[in-house]
Design a binder for these strands. Structure first.
Lengths: 208, 208
DNA sequence: GCTTGACTTGACCAAACAGTCAACTATCAG
DNA sequence: CTGATAGTTGACTGTTTGGTCAAGTCAAGC
């Protein structure tokens, strides 16, 4: 019963877009409301604070975008190294497209927001941490499969996954700072090499 | 002639501290003035805007802290892999200390600020970019020396340096987000392995 | 078709904000 | 000693900000 609305969804989408394009701190509640076409009273009907909205928006992004994409890219139907190579190639092409659309490389919103607010907005920080950890599981499982398959030397999969995430997020951040997607061009090959894949298997994996 | 002052230096130090602890967007001109013990009128006597101050503060940090430290860590008097290992070990121990002092892992201010403001404050973004590039030169020269010495396989030193910086900054950011310095514990070994150093040379490099 | 309750609206408030200024003060060079 | 000048101060302005609210609107379920 009662009136129906998609204002909360419009607010989440607007918030994520703006925060991605600018930054968490540079975006005001008014900015978000204007972009979403929602009045401030409605904002506070759905969310207690900007941080509250950010948490909801991040979780929504995970559910509607990140998770489906990762499920596709890291499907066990592919061989482990191809999963990673495909995912990283897609990230590279995506940032090229983002630069075309927005005029700027925008990188990864989860990472940017996390680094910005982790010491301040604890709820947002916790949500970022959660999403980051979920991503790590995809890497970890891929690494375990690659070891089992013999395509990379044995190692601590959890630790390697964390370092791999560092490499990926670090270069993505670098491409945002430098505003240059080409920083990511060799990421697939670099990442495979980092995992210890032989130069030949890197070659064959990337040529598919 | 005229009155002397160190207010500009106090402002730069205060700004850098606050921005490091919180974020660029979360810190106001009033906050900076209060921490520096300077009145707002004096702030605007020395700097046009917060962005202007940030640029000056970053350059000052480079000159008084980063550069001397890098010159020490990457001194050609050490063998190339030891330079990197020593530098990364120091970063790890430093973040442990920062967590003790501030209660939180704060990561690298250049990288955090860069990721936050690169799309908005172009002057600050350019300065971050400049400092980032200067850091890359240390990595690049170390990599070239390591190749010449035969301790790592040949590669494009510039590209490898960029990826190495991604790995280091990425894991540093991860440790800030997770508020856990232990993320950086194996960074020395991980980075040496990433460069292609043999397990034995990693072992001997780290045991010194 | 009417009641209930979720949603909307625009006006409103106090606090925080960036930025200005004229009057004041300390210091250095001559 | 003194004048020119760099630096200081606190009070000021206008704007943006987060946040509230009472009155109004609309749709679902009975």
């Amino acid at each position: 019963m009662g009136r129906t609305s998609d204002a909360d969804i419009r607010l989440m989408d607007a918030a994520l877009d703006l925060i991605w394009e600018e930054s968490y701190g540079a975006v005001s509640v008014d900015d978000i409301c204007t972009r979403a076409g929602v009045k401030k009273g409605s904002f506070y009907h759905f969310f207690k604070t900007k941080a509250d909205l950010a948490v909801a928006a991040l979780e929504r992004m995970w559910l509607t975008e990140t998770k489906p994409q990762l499920d596709h890219d890291f499907s066990p139907s592919l061989n482990p190294l191809q999963r990673l190579a495909g995912n990283l190639e897609r990230i590279y092409l995506y940032q090229i497209d983002v630069k075309k659309q927005h005029g700027k490389v925008l990188g990864c919103p989860v990472c940017s927001v996390g680094s910005e607010v982790s010491t301040q907005e604890t709820d947002v920080g916790a949500k970022v941490c959660e999403i980051y950890s979920r991503k790590l599981r995809y890497y970890e499982s891929m690494i375990r499969d690659a070891i089992a398959e013999g395509s990379i030397p044995p190692c601590d999969a959890h630790e390697k996954a964390s370092a791999l995430a560092g490499l990926i997020e670090g270069l993505t951040t670098q491409s945002r700072i430098m505003n240059d997607p080409e920083v990511l061009k060799n990421l697939p090959a670099t990442a495979l090499g980092f995992l210890g894949a032989s130069p030949e298997s890197v070659q064959t994996t990337l040529s598919r």
